[in-house]
Design a protein around this nucleic acid. Structure first.
Lengths: 148, 148
DNA sequence: TTAAGTGCAAATATTTTGCTGTCAC
DNA sequence: GTGACAGCAAAATATTTGCACTTAA
């Protein structure tokens, strides 16, 4: 069964509470937006959606919360080949790092998982002597519909 | 013989001339900077170096020239895990896409090449039906000196 | 000659920061 | 009660654009 979404809503709250991070209404709203997102969102989109839950939320609170989640390794930051503008996109950290393929024409994003990618990471750790913390593979190309 | 730099200086000029792109003193300076760079530079660094060759060069000319080179597939745009700030870094497009590993502590960047990476790209093209134009793998971690 | 390129200034976009008041614990 | 967090406004950073002048071909 590929892609069973076993995400428990509220998981972020639990994880942050375990680490003694203070929970506020604003954070709850932002976490909720990210946890329930069906696509990758940038900071501006997260702000707009979070404001529907709590109209007073400020831009800087979104950035500060994203920073917090990044520091705690709960989300990943993506560029998605900068399809539109230069903003970053965010997603819940997947159990196993996956690859993003973006269609440069229609903008469709698909996610891809591969043992080869895991092997490659293992090879890099071995041959370069690096302990890998994040490995971001982002691919731009043309999807089956768009390539001519 | 790994890493034989067979780059012919002036290659960009030739390639652009072949495509009927107009050559100007400013462009020559900027191309020169990128072609002779020994490390990845961001737009600001390219501007500063180009100005040593032609003091009148404007920031916007650098960005416009980088756009031109990107459109013509002569350079690659990298993030290098945003080690400092959010700027992009540029390098001559390598014959074979390589991987950048950045040390999150000391900032050292190493480049890595792997058949496994080529196989992975082939696998993605096959299984996803995408024709891949760019594949950017950027890794953050801790180099042998910095990991504790 | 003339379309493409340039500098300049201003606009845009994204993210960060200082400060002061507020709230979770 | 107090230290962490919030909103607000302003700054910092990165990049893009409109326009009038200049220049390569």
């Amino acid at each position: 069964m590929p892609f069973a979404n076993t995400e428990i809503p509220g998981r972020f709250q639990t994880l942050l509470a375990e680490r003694g991070i203070r929970m506020t209404g604003q954070r709850r709203a932002i976490l909720n937006v990210i946890e329930t997102a069906k696509k990758h969102l940038d900071a501006g989109q997260i702000l707009r959606r979070a404001r529907k839950l709590d109209a007073s939320i400020d831009r800087s609170t979104v950035y500060r919360t994203l920073g917090l989640l990044k520091r705690h390794g709960l989300i990943d930051e993506l560029d998605l080949m900068h399809l539109e503008g230069e903003a970053h996109y965010y997603e819940r950290k997947p159990d196993r790092g996956h690859i993003h393929l973006a269609c440069l024409r229609c903008g469709k994003i698909i996610e891809f998982d591969s043992d080869l990618f895991e092997s490659l990471k293992a090879q890099m750790e071995k041959e370069c002597g690096y302990r890998i913390a994040v490995a971001r593979l982002e691919v731009g190309g043309y999807c089956s519909k768009c390539r001519t």
